[in-house]
Design a protein around this nucleic acid. Structure first.
Length: 581
RNA sequence: GCGCCCGUAGCUCAGUGGAUAGAGCGUUCGCCUCCGGAGCGAAAGGUCAGAGGUUCGAAUCCUCUCGGGCGCGCCA
């Protein structure tokens, strides 16, 4: 249960009763009514703004309307006390049984707690990584990969039907360069001296096995076929081997996408014509001449009529070309087809996760999607800012030399998948991220991964002690605990925090912001550590009370609750909880 | 020249219409005969870049200015 929504719904329901009885005018817009936490906890558990946002339309003073709603809310069984405060807040104190009931709910549902039906099965397509198949993934790709994967998991938990997708850019000039590189490596594998890899080709060692595979399969025959045929074979082999490597890199960070879409396949299937026909039928394609770009002036700029998409009708700055001078489609044209394909077959809503350097491309794709769907909210593009790799505060220089960059695999091998994933999600996607290889493995409080893991390990430690002393300690055993024995303010405060997990999931899903989960987990871990230390000073507050089995049972239930929430949150982030550290 | 993102404590960052703006690090002062001190408590530290505007209410929304980052031809 999202308890904020629960109390807001109660208020809305009472408001409808007031409308029915004629005490409040009908037809008010209720969408702005929301529930939040009061700034001062002594003001209550939930603060409603409903009276303030509706007062004007209702022609009433906010506090009068608040009092009207409050007097009816006081009849509700989940509510102990309702106060009207400040400019018209309705502050609600939940009844004494409400919080123990939430903890029971958590124990019953375990790590499944926090799921909701907010998405109502609506299909969402999340496309992420989509790196060109020309080499290993680097850490920048890693951020988008982790972000997209966690976002997909959050949406699933919030009740959406999610497809995780990778778009393979296997149709451009860069894959021809890749193929040329593979052919050169094949010569090398066949014993020829190829010297240094020429500028413009891919110099990385990862192309050596591709050449070897070609040599193995075709031998000298590779050079007896036509150039065209050889290029085709090399291209297809290179792409498939690069994608295998990329899939391995992704698997190393726990990512397995559902769909891999090929740009080439889309073009070959005639999807571009189909998509552009649709735009044409809406009168959005025309022959025209563009202004030369501002800023740096291209030397060979040539004014000529070209096939353009009327992107300016949907908020873009200029209309965008669909065909190159040689008559082939631009990347944008095939991208329109790709998004059309996604929206027709694999999701009513699209989310694209891109690197920050693609920011200038958003408007035109958004324009195309809007033109095709008639909706301006069908696509959300999430940009991930750059990742800087540091070691003990010093920037790890990335060489400009091509082929020599920090790969995702290197970082995973050094710090592990869980640390990489968690740290990548402790920053908003649109803020740059410093990733310090030394600090992220420090086992101290300034490392959020260990802080959260430590809380989980401590919980487990308590349960092990309980087990040794013969106390019941499984979630099932503890369902029968008398949770009304949890009366310390920090105990109740911790339950409230645990019970706000469903709301955190919904907010993260709504905003497409996985980092909210990471911050919530830190907050939860902090609350647990705090309670733990309170027991250090006051032994009557320790979880295990040898002479009081009922109190112990209730507190162990709380510990299991913390475990359930941390496990649930970490699982959304794709991180494994640890038992001991 | 234009577009997008960002500007919050000394530092790194949360907080996208609610009440007295938060956390970690750093600084200062406390807490281990004790379920894990890899932790906890307290103090100090803010004109939320600036100026207008909308609103009962603005760090949050709008406009402009300043500062930083990314990008801006048929590339992908």
């Amino acid at each position: 249960m999202n308890y904020f929504q629960h109390f807001n719904d109660l208020a809305l329901s009472e408001l409808k009763n007031l409308m029915d009885s004629g005490e409040v005018p009908v037809g008010l817009n209720l969408s702005r009514a929301t529930a939040g936490s009061p700034r001062d906890p002594t003001h209550g558990d939930v603060a409603l703004n409903i009276a303030m946002v509706l007062a004007k339309d209702a022609g009433m003073k906010p506090r009068d309307l608040a009092e009207l709603i409050a007097s009816r809310l006081r009849q509700q069984m989940d509510i102990a006390l309702v106060e009207v405060a400040g400019p018209g807040f309705i502050n609600i104190h939940a009844s004494s049984t409400f919080w123990p009931d939430r903890l029971s709910e958590i124990l019953a549902q375990g790590a499944n707690y926090g799921g909701s039906n907010m998405g109502a099965g609506r299909r969402v397509n999340v496309e992420y990584v989509s790196a060109n198949p020309t080499g290993p993934l680097h850490v920048g790709h890693g951020r988008g990969a982790v972000f997209g994967d966690a976002l997909a998991a959050i949406l699933q938990k919030a009740g959406f039907e999610v497809i995780r997708e990778y778009y393979i850019n296997d149709a451009g000039a860069q894959v021809d360069v890749l193929a040329e590189t593979a052919i050169l490596r094949a010569r090398e594998a066949l014993g020829q001296d190829i010297g240094p890899i020429p500028d413009g080709l891919y110099p990385g060692d990862y192309m050596v096995p591709v050449g070897a595979a070609l040599a193995e399969a075709y031998g000298e025959g590779l050079f007896k076929m036509s150039d065209q045929e050889r290029l085709e074979i090399a291209r297809s082999k290179a792409i498939s081997m690069m994608m295998d490597m990329i899939r391995d890199d992704l698997a190393a960070v726990g990512i397995n996408q559902d769909v891999f879409s090929s740009e080439r396949a889309i073009v070959d299937a005639g999807a571009v014509d189909a998509a552009l026909d649709t735009l044409e039928s809406k009168g959005l394609v025309y022959e025209g001449v563009l202004e030369p770009p501002k800023g740096k002036k291209p030397d060979d700029w040539e004014e000529r009529p070209q096939t353009l998409f009327r992107a300016t009708s949907f908020g873009d700055d200029v209309d965008r070309p669909l065909k190159k001078s040689d008559g082939s489609w631009t990347y944008f044209a095939t991208d329109i087809a790709y998004h059309f394909d996604k929206i027709c077959n694999r999701g009513e809503d699209l989310i694209d996760v891109w690197g920050a350097d693609h920011g200038g491309y958003i408007k035109r794709v958004a324009a195309a999607v809007q033109a095709l769907t008639g909706r301006n909210d069908a696509l959300d593009v999430k940009l991930c800012q750059l990742v800087r790799i540091l070691r003990d505060g010093d920037l790890v220089r990335m060489s400009k030399r091509a082929g020599d960059f920090i790969t995702l695999r290197e970082v995973v091998d050094e710090v592990g998948k869980d640390v990489l994933r968690f740290i990548m999600l402790t920053r908003k996607n649109d803020a740059p991220l410093d990733f310090d290889l030394a600090r992220v493995v420090h086992q101290s409080k300034d490392n959020p991964v260990f802080y959260v893991q430590y809380a989980h390990a401590r919980c487990r430690s308590v349960l092990r002690h309980a087990e040794d002393s013969g106390f019941p300690n499984t979630p099932k055993d503890l369902l029968s605990a008398d949770l009304s024995l949890l009366v310390d303010e920090d105990e109740v405060g911790l339950i409230k925090l645990l019970a706000s997990w469903p709301r955190t999931v919904e907010q993260a899903a709504e905003a497409h912001e996985p980092h909210r989960v990471a911050f919530y987990l830190q907050e939860t871990a902090a609350a647990f550590h705090q309670l733990w230390n309170k027991g250090r000073d006051d032994t009557t507050l320790r979880f295990i009370q040898p002479t009081e089995p009922e109190a112990t049972k209730a507190r162990l239930a709380l510990v299991q609750g913390v475990i359930a929430i941390i496990a649930s949150g970490l699982s959304v982030l794709g991180v494994e909880p640890v038992e001991v550290m």
